[in-house]
Write a protein that binds this DNA or RNA. Sequence first.
DNA 1: CTTCTTTATGAAAATGAGTCTCATTTCTGA
DNA 2: TCAGAAATGAGACTCATTTTCATAAAGAAG
Lengths: 148, 148
Amino acid sequence: MATKTDKAWAEHALAALAEAGFKRGGARTAVVEALAGHSCAVTALDLDEELRRRRPAVGRASVYRALEQLEQLGLVQRLEVTRGTAGYERVEPDGEHHHHAICRDCGRMVPFEDSSLERAIAELSAEMSFEVTDHDVVLRGLCERCAN
Amino acid sequence: MATKTDKAWAEHALAALAEAGFKRGGARTAVVEALAGHSCAVTALDLDEELRRRRPAVGRASVYRALEQLEQLGLVQRLEVTRGTAGYERVEPDGEHHHHAICRDCGRMVPFEDSSLERAIAELSAEMSFEVTDHDVVLRGLCERCAN
DNA sequence: CTTCTTTATGAAAATGAGTCTCATTTCTGA
DNA sequence: TCAGAAATGAGACTCATTTTCATAAAGAAG
């Protein structure tokens, strides 16, 4: 509602999937479109519920499968939203990316980005005997509302 | 085997638990002792298995309870080891703390610490409208062995 | 456009980590 | 020593995620 559908991302994602050799399929396309409509992380079950009522209905397995494929291709980012549940959100093709602060009480997520943080991680990654391809940063605590 | 039991941490933890108003209990003590014997993250179920055979046996619920309490008090750090499973590891009382690089292939964890990363996070936390109490940083990629 | 082969899909069952319940035992302060 | 509070463990339960498997849709070949 606050965010309009990110059509550019959806097209980018569908193109990347085709590029990777996937056949076209209604379920996967539906997942991509649904993700394009969410600006911040959504859980797989939220997507499942959202897509289950479609005609034709999308099955839960397909949702999980699509999310996994999208993640492999670097089109979505997965993060642990609460204990035992993962959230997924679009990764913009231009490489912009953000991290999240998650409220321990209400679960609210506040996205943020910080260049000095990214720089520190990049330098660190370069000097490790480890081929770093991704990173997650999660801040945890209380949001403005729950803190009082 | 590579690491000898961290007795100092165990005493510190037990003292902190007493300080926090917990009564003494065999199960919790057993969990603390078990954690003291692991230098890197262990899953709750690993601990459960390790402690189940003790005399008297420690129940699964007690393991989870103890881990949660220890985490609340900042005595252990929780991190997502693989999809859907959490690992727990000791936090040294001197405030030193480290993060992990996790290999996507073999699951190996390489701990690291970096002061400029910590500094960036501290500064960032200070200027957010969010009361940040904790943070996780996970680097993902391929370890030296799996990269070749 | 029909056939063939492969991939995609969805319903339901299975898995597995983590949580809850509750009867029982253990602590601790009085 | 006693009563009340806290801790414990066995097992049932929840719920996110994965697997299975029979069927449907896609793309290639003819």
